[in-house]
Design a protein around this nucleic acid. Structure first.
Lengths: 233, 233
DNA sequence: ACCTGAACACCGTTCAAGT
DNA sequence: ACCTGAACACCGTTCAAGT
């Protein structure tokens, strides 16, 4: 009962901003972003919700911090890449960085949504963009073209695209067929496309999926377009 | 006090799913999406929060419905467009539809974020995509290329891109200069670019803005890339 | 058929108080 | 310096009850 040396009680490492943010990521990793509440986060750390406020300003601050930690992780991975970026090689270098960033985000599938809601900019994200910009400059981009390029890439620069809809979500393969038949009248082009895609690639999950190859298709479309403009200049 | 014919009381039009959804849009339009709560929505309609549940299943259902109403509005605008889409004209037709969709969304700046959180697909959104697909098919796209194209466009197909960061947010023009100087060491490429962009275009808000011209640059980059693939096939 | 009052289980956050 | 208990103002949602 005394305040010190309770026998058998673990000494419990003290809280810190760092520990709070890492715990937040682990809570979201295992239960999704909607499971991340201040109370649950505290519980995860063996503390009371109110204790968190000594180390972070509020929940927004937690989310800002989480983005910064993940962006730092991306920078660590991406800083190890060492490929030439001069001239025409800019594209390979940028492409590899972006795909590496994507790999980190694939381990935190909830993170893209949080990235998009931030209004305060993470310094780590700025550092990521700065390096990307450096590669483009080395490849001969003007500042103006590099500026357009960042806008054109958007979230793809960080390795993700938000899916806008998924005709397959929540429906099993058998419901699927019925749904398609029912919708054929209303959405002839969509149904026709999905039928053919499925036919061409029977191994993939039916039709719609934001997989690696779709991401790379879109990415290369943009990078190739930028490269063409670069060469013309 | 009696239940009928209270003198001077407006007869109050009854609630309906339609009215609830329209009110939800107007609440979000005027106070932002975070101001949209079931209680406030009810208040806006002169009813109690609990009454809403007779007309909608829950808040998710409200958000699904709101997306459907806005997508319906987009379809109404876009259906009035009548330009040829055969062969090489596909691009002009698709471009015009997408820019028209964007105009609708610009009137509901909070809507893109809601679109992205939906997992249930709105039928109106499906109808929009189906029409877009139809234009591409008329332009000579294979189903496979059209499928890639929709993925590559992502949310751009509906007229928006989510900004990932905004170095200017929350800082006035004077703070701005100080911030830039301070960051110059850490982010040389970013600072150099922003300085030059600002110099080249002194009329625009300093540096970073997702304006119409940036949207169109990215859109055309993708459409041009798709057109090249189409011509090769 | 349509609406509501009371109530429940959750939030984020504050503040004064403990060690 | 660090943590917490009690409390507040807010959520979304249920259910039995009113007209």
């Amino acid at each position: 009962m005394a305040s010190q040396a309770v026998p058998g009680a673990e000494p419990r490492t003290p809280l810190s901003r760092e520990r709070v943010l890492r715990a937040a990521i682990s809570v979201a990793d295992s239960g999704g972003i909607e499971s991340l509440t201040m109370r649950r986060l505290a519980e995860h750390l063996g503390a009371e919700a109110m204790s968190l406020y000594y180390h972070v300003a509020n929940k927004e601050d937690v989310l800002d911090g989480v983005v910064d930690v993940i962006a730092t992780e991306i920078n660590e991975v991406v800083d190890r890449i060492d490929v030439p970026a001069e001239g025409a090689d800019w594209k390979k270098a940028v492409r590899q960085r972006i795909l590496s960033a994507r790999e980190v985000l694939l381990r935190h599938a909830w993170a893209p949504g949080v990235f998009e809601t931030r209004t305060n900019t993470s310094l780590a994200v700025l550092r990521y963009y700065d390096a990307l910009l450096g590669l483009m400059r080395a490849g001969g981009f003007s500042n103006d073209l590099a500026h357009h390029a960042l806008h054109a890439l958007g979230s793809r620069a960080l390795g993700f695209t938000q899916e806008l809809f998924d005709p397959n979500s929540g429906a099993g393969a058998t419901d699927q067929a019925a749904d398609l038949a029912e919708m054929a009248g209303q959405f002839p082009n969509l149904v026709g496309m999905l039928a053919e895609i499925a036919h061409d690639d029977p191994d993939s999950t039916l039709g719609w999926c934001d997989d690696q190859s779709e991401f790379e298709f879109g990415l290369d479309l943009i990078l190739d377009g930028l490269d063409r403009i670069r060469e013309r200049a």
